[in-house]
Nucleic acid binder design. Structure first.
Length: 353
DNA sequence: GAATCGTGGCC
DNA sequence: TGGCCAAGATT
């Protein structure tokens, strides 16, 4: 009845994905590499992570290197990957590990580190240190809900799913290969037991899958309905000087896009801004050139921005209130995706203004 | 438990 | 086109 771990491990031997952070069979895993990849992979696709992972390892080959880096450098390297609290916690965690001298090797101690929760602690413990625990991510929740035909909707069913997932780990085979078993679950979820159109015909666990037997596998896991995503509106001003530097400021450490750079502008409100009201938030008096609009979808709201730009004549870049920021090169700025969209609008065709 | 927190790709 | 989804953590 309970799926056989040996069947999954055998499948994994021939179907495992090759990924930059994975050590080859027989190689000793690098806890720093495992940790870095796990943080980046939180709510983020493998495809998006790979380039960032390589960049971080190049700039910071060890956790000591990362710990010694200025936070602005870390945020710059992270810019575009999203969920920026991860980058701030990553840096804080690196500093803590550097103090400790090494990564903790138990779930209990890993949980004490910033940015490491129930999933990541178990992933690191299993993959880097061979602890016989099952990290329960979205893949494992999906696989488990189908194997046991659990129809209770997420997120309320999360605890039950974790308990059932732990059952998969009971056999001696699984206990002896925690790293492979955990990653086999990920790969099964990513390539066979996918959210839509799962490939049940080639699944090593199909014979014991209750969801498949009942014909409801592809409909699991059930999820509670999500609430509507409101729209907010804002206006940003991109002010260039004759050296192609741009007026930018850094957002507060906490909250949305915390610690990241932005172009000065209005608050993001529920109602559209009139041009007259928006101009009260401009760093200089007009005239401004309207460059266009940007739509950007965040997790819990859609943002619609109007973007104005202007190039300041030589010698006029002094006397701007510091609350609007300072003139800096954008090449090393920690610009989140939404601000990169604004910048692209401003610098396109700028000579035509 | 419910909110908050990014971004890109897919159908 | 818009909703859904991706190796979740924090408050």
């Amino acid at each position: 009845m309970t799926p056989d771990a040996s069947d999954l491990l055998r499948w994994y031997d021939t179907h495992r994905r090759t990924l930059p952070w994975r050590s080859l069979p027989g190689q000793r895993p690098n806890p720093y590499a495992v940790w870095l990849s796990e943080i980046m992979l939180q709510q983020t696709t493998v495809k998006a992570v790979i380039a960032y992972y390589e960049r971080f390892l190049t700039h910071y080959p060890t956790v000591q290197d990362l710990a010694a880096a200025p936070q602005e450098d870390v945020l710059y390297l992270w810019a575009g990957l999203g969920y920026y609290a991860r980058a701030r916690n990553l840096h804080a965690c690196a500093k803590r590990v550097a103090e400790l001298g090494q990564f903790p090797d138990t779930v209990e101690d890993l949980l004490k580190l910033p940015g490491i929760g129930a999933y990541t602690a178990r992933a690191i413990a299993a993959i880097a240190f061979g602890r016989p625990v099952v990290p329960v991510d979205g893949n494992v929740e999906r696989v488990t809900s189908r194997l046991f035909a659990i129809e209770n909707p997420l997120p309320a069913s999360r605890l039950l799913l974790a308990k059932q997932a732990a059952l998969l780990n009971q056999s001696a085979e699984a206990q002896d290969h925690p790293s492979d078993f955990a990653q086999a679950l990920f790969d099964l979820g990513a390539t066979i037991c996918t959210p839509r159109n799962p490939s049940c015909l080639t699944c090593p666990w199909r014979p014991s899958c209750l969801g498949h037997a009942r014909g409801i596998a592809s409909t699991l896991p059930r999820k509670a309905p999500k609430q509507a995503r409101p729209t907010r509106y804002g206006v940003h001003f991109i002010l260039l000087d004759t050296s192609e530097r741009v007026l930018m400021r850094t957002r507060p450490e906490k909250g949305l896009l915390g610690g990241m750079d932005e172009f000065p502008g209005t608050e993001w409100h529920e109602a559209p801004w009139t041009e007259a009201d928006a101009m009260h938030h401009a760093p200089t008096l007009g005239p401004w050139s309207l460059r266009g609009d940007v739509t950007h979808v965040f997790t819990h709201f859609t943002l619609k921005l109007m973007v104005y730009a202007k190039t300041l004549p030589a010698g006029h870049n002094a006397g701007i209130d510091p609350s609007f920021g300072a003139f800096r090169s954008t090449t090393r700025a920690a610009l989140p995706g939404v601000m990169k969209k604004c910048l692209a609008l401003a610098v396109t065709d700028m000579e035509k203004k």
